[in-house]
Design a protein around this nucleic acid. Sequence first.
RNA 1: GGCUGCGUACCCAAGUGGUUUAAGGGGACGGAUUGCAAAUCCGUUAUUCGCCGGUUCGAAUCCGGCCGCAGCCUCCA
Length: 503
Amino acid sequence: MTLRVYNTLSGEKELFETVKPGEVGIYLCGPTVYKPSHIGHAVGPIIFDVIKRYLTFKNFKVTWVLNVTDVEDKLIAESQAQGRDMLELARDLERQYVDAMAALGVKNIDYMPRASEHIQEIIDHIGQLMEKDYAYAVDGDVYFDVSKDEDYGKLTNRKADDQESGTREGLVKAAKRNPGDFALWKAAKPGEPDSAKYKAPWGSGRPGWHIECSAMAMKYLGQTFDIHGGGLDLKFPHHENEIAQAESATDQVFAKYWLHHGLTRFNTKKIAKSDPEMAKVMESLQITNLLKKHDPEVLRFLILQSHYRSPIEFSEDVVKAAKTGLGTFRRLLERIERVTNADPYKPELQIERMRDVEMDPRSRSLFDELMQSRVRFLEELDDDFNTAGAIAVLFEIASAMNKYIDDAKLETHSEELPRNVLRACGGTLVSFGNILGLFERRPAAVSMGDDGKVPALLELLVDVRKMSREAKQYGIGDHIRDELTKLGITLEDGKDGTRWRID
RNA sequence: GGCUGCGUACCCAAGUGGUUUAAGGGGACGGAUUGCAAAUCCGUUAUUCGCCGGUUCGAAUCCGGCCGCAGCCUCCA
């Protein structure tokens, strides 16, 4: 099985071949920490987290870098508006971001370099470009000369001359040699905080955004590495400029594969802070607020249910549908636990290992189906990380297992063999989910602000219901159940007693 | 104006030349099960992939035109 990835550079799916055998270097553009992150900021980290998990599963040694931009014009403006120290504000927002990502199951980032801590590397990088005459300084600013870079624009297929002149004209500084030249270094201006001023050979100031990324990417991953990712709104100018800087400085290929993920939308529009309409709903789209309302695994599941290159239309309805869908797996895992008496979240048995075990026809047929699903699941991920297709396979697996439990009547009487088959199937389901960062742990019980009394009270109600039902007093039992449903508590009468579920 | 994409059922969403006379999820409806529910299982819900034309033995998938939507060209995941 071979992995193919869509490379923005070629516009095609390409066979994935690493720069160094067995190793993969990944750089993903992270946040500029000047405002709280919104749900759209989670898409990149989640899909790249899956990419890393999958490549690791395929036995690659993966190094994943995600940067934090903490020296930037907007951050300066925001800190001044709030009257807070710039770096203090940046650290605060960074912590929120990291916590939110951790909650969403993004835990495999190897390096999170901050721009503010890589000024020397950035200055060296600019120095190289000046030495090779790709860059020039004017009044303390340093610009990259796009006319010197012959293949400038190769990522997004554009020529600086063809771009709309109207929007740009007002911003063009007379000092620039070409309108498309971009800043590598910005001279400090009066009134800017000291924490945004760094000494450089061409004067005090701060780095441009683009150079931060190429400098840090090369520091941690080398001059040439495998995958560079980001939102597709970063293709131009950010990634185009990164390529120009890095390849002009080193004469080597910068990143081999460029992966761009789709943007999250709300009401068909990209979620962006600068959009005035969006600003009104921004608070509800902030990750920290969404995490207060929704299970993080549901949000992750929702994001992975579409292909990473597609846009995601975010709404409460979509979250609800994702929650219901994920619930299917959670109930199945609970069911497996009841039948097998083993913790399904710690899978130690896999279906492949049951190959030579003698089985009844029903078990054999489930085994066969799962072995086929296994192949399809991996094929989906090999096809440009098609997580949506992979999840579809998981649903089919879940359905087959539920049917098996039903048909073999495992809940009322179960023998050793079917229990082991089920345990192995559950193990496979969970380990596949784990590749997507799902089913990693038992869903947290919904907190009702109690001190353990709610479960006890529910047990009491269940008990009362049981007594009334045994006396054929169904009205009482139904009343209890109906009223609990209104509170978001579901009662299920099974053969082995009544179970309750909150929310 | 230049450059990218996208348009698949009631909703979300895979699939980009034959293995698909279109996965999967949500919803709705019918059946099994249940005292009734819930959960689970079975079935139904696109002869059709924005529209029109072309290429091909064969197209949702390729080409052209049109319509609609989004992204970039200024900071943005």
